[in-house]
């Protein structure tokens, strides 16, 4: 083991920071493992909750918006159309909400032991990614129920998942760091998430947005990702060529600035948390 030097840091994001995260990967694994273990202790139906929540939400939204309101769904069964967006949305919303609390909840740990603090929001995103994949399985099963073929674009699915993870982590970095400094963020986050839900094409299609507003609309990075999901699974997303680049741009910006802001805050985190 080599010599370690502890000096005042600038709080800048350097390659060494990423190397450190890699060195602590085992702890990252334990954080994820802990959250999953704890989450379903003392629950009767356990992991089934992961499936039940989105399925019931899907059915309710499917009946109301698909059958009663008759929102256009680009020619696909509304349930599939909605569910496709919802799995992406859920990962984003849950990760952002929980990551926002990540540092505060683990205050005890942060003030007592050193580890790269960024592991906390990352572990929360990963934990929700696991739920996400379970939901993907449920979603795939629906294709068999509806007897619809999955699009060949599914091969590109990992790209959209990657952008989604970048976005969720970026937002997680921002929220968790802000939450340490400003406690009113805690109240603002759920509200913000709710506003974003309605400004994202979860229950409706992006085709309802007038074309001239589309780029602006897609600056909400969830838009392009949901479009991407629909394109990958269902085969068609008329606005993808506009929304996806805008979203990639936005997600990367949020991720990078989040990283910078997080490390800025981490520098003095124990003094202020």
């Amino acid at each position: 083991m080599g010599k370690k030097i502890i000096e005042p840091s600038s709080g800048a994001v350097t390659g060494a920071k990423f190397k450190e995260i890699w060195e602590y990967r085992e702890l990252l694994y334990f954080f994820v493992w802990r959250e999953i273990k704890v989450r379903y202790k003392h629950t009767v139906i356990g992991v089934s909750w992961v499936v039940i929540q989105p399925v019931i939400a899907g059915l309710i939204f499917g009946v109301i918006f698909g059958k009663f309101v008759r929102l256009p769904s680009d020619g696909y069964p509304y349930l599939l159309f909605f569910f496709c967006a919802m799995i992406a949305w859920n990962l984003f919303a849950n990760a952002a909400l929980k990551a926002g609390e990540g540092l505060l909840i683990n205050r005890n740990l942060v003030t007592k032991i050193y580890f790269p603090r960024i592991l906390l929001p990352i572990s929360i995103v990963l934990e929700n990614t696991l739920d996400f994949f379970i939901c993907c399985m449920v979603f795939l099963a629906m294709f068999f129920v509806f007897k619809i073929k999955i699009s060949a674009h599914i091969l590109y699915f990992p790209i959209f998942v990657f952008v989604l993870l970048i976005l969720a982590s970026g937002v997680g970095f921002w929220f968790s760091a802000l939450n340490v400094r400003y406690r009113d963020v805690r109240y603002a986050i759920p509200f913000l998430i709710q506003v974003m839900f309605y400004s994202s094409p979860v229950v409706y299609s992006t085709t309802v947005i007038p074309e001239k507003w589309l780029f602006l609309y897609a600056l909400n990075p969830v838009v392009g990702i949901i479009d991407g999901f629909r394109w990958a699974f269902l085969g068609k997303a008329a606005t993808l060529h506009i929304t996806f680049p805008a979203s990639v741009l936005c997600a990367s910006l949020i991720f990078l600035s989040g990283l910078v802001y997080f490390y800025r805050t981490q520098k003095n985190i124990v003094d202020i948390i």
């Binding site: 083991m1 502890i6 000096e7 005042p8 840091s9 032991i113 003094d271």
Partner: peptide, 21 residues
């Protein structure tokens, strides 16, 4: 500071070996 929980404002600590706190 030696266990890296807080950062020093100035100065330097050099550590040779694995630290357990």
């Amino acid at each position: 500071i030696i266990s890296r929980i807080v950062e020093p404002t100035a100065g330097r600590v050099t550590i040779d070996g694995r630290v357990g706190a």
